[in-house]
Amino acid sequence: MSDSQAGSGQEPPKIEFPCEDYPIKVMGDSGSEFHQFVVQVMERHAPGLDTAKITVKDSRNGRFQSITFMITATGEDQLQALHQELIASPMTKMVL
C-alpha cells in the first residue's frame, strides 16, 4: 500500500463555498407528489434553482424515481438543512 492509501493523515479535499453545480440526488417513490415535494424543498434551500438542470430517472419497474439537481451550494448549513428536510418525508428513500 502506498502512503496515500495507508491513512497518511491526509484529509479529503474540502469543498469551497459557494460551489456551483453541486449535485444532489434524491431517490423516492415514483410520482408527481414526490417530484413536486422535492422541487419545492430544493427551491426553498437553493434560491435560483435552474430547473433545466434537473434530471429524472425512473427505476426499471417504475416504482421509484431518482431526481438529480445541480445547485449552488452556499455552505454546510444549507446542505445539512436540505438533507434533513428531504429525508424527513416518508416518500424519500435516500439523499446523496
Rank of each mutant, 00 (worst) to 15 (best):
M1T: 10
S2G: 06
S2A: 08
S4L: 13
Q5L: 11
Q5R: 11
Q5S: 05
Q5A: 09
A6G: 03
A6S: 06
G7T: 03
G7H: 03
S8Q: 03
G9F: 01
G9V: 02
G9I: 02
Q10D: 04
Q10P: 05
Q10F: 07
Q10T: 06
E11Q: 10
P12Y: 05
P13R: 07
K14T: 06
I15E: 07
I15L: 05
F17L: 01
P18W: 03
E20H: 12
E20M: 15
E20K: 14
D21I: 01
Y22Q: 04
Y22F: 10
P23K: 02
P23A: 06
I24V: 06
I24C: 01
I24G: 00
K25P: 07
V26R: 04
G28K: 08
G28R: 10
D29F: 15
D29S: 15
D29E: 15
S30T: 13
S30N: 13
S30Y: 13
S30A: 15
G31T: 00
G31F: 00
S32P: 06
S32A: 12
S32H: 04
S32Q: 08
E33T: 12
E33C: 13
E33N: 13
F34W: 04
F34G: 02
F34C: 04
F34A: 03
H35N: 12
H35T: 14
Q36N: 12
Q36D: 10
F37T: 03
F37E: 01
E43A: 11
E43L: 12
E43P: 08
E43C: 09
R44W: 03
A46L: 03
A46H: 05
A46E: 01
P47Q: 05
G48I: 00
G48Q: 05
L49R: 06
L49H: 04
T51A: 11
A52I: 15
K53L: 09
I54C: 05
I54L: 07
I54N: 03
T55D: 14
V56P: 15
K57H: 11
K57G: 11
D58A: 14
D58I: 12
S59L: 10
R60C: 15
N61A: 15
N61C: 15
R63L: 15
R63T: 14
F64N: 13
F64L: 15
Q65N: 13
S66W: 06
S66V: 05
I67Q: 04
I67C: 04
T68V: 11
F69M: 03
I71S: 00
T72L: 00
A73D: 00
G75P: 01
G75K: 01
E76D: 09
E76I: 11
E76S: 08
D77K: 07
Q78T: 09
Q78M: 06
L79H: 03
L79Q: 00
L79I: 01
L79P: 01
Q80N: 13
Q80P: 08
L82N: 03
L82P: 00
L82C: 04
H83C: 05
E85V: 02
E85C: 02
E85K: 09
A88T: 11
S89K: 09
S89W: 04
P90Y: 12
P90G: 11
T92K: 07
T92S: 10
T92Q: 09
T92A: 09
K93G: 12
V95W: 02
L96H: 12
L96P: 09
L96N: 13
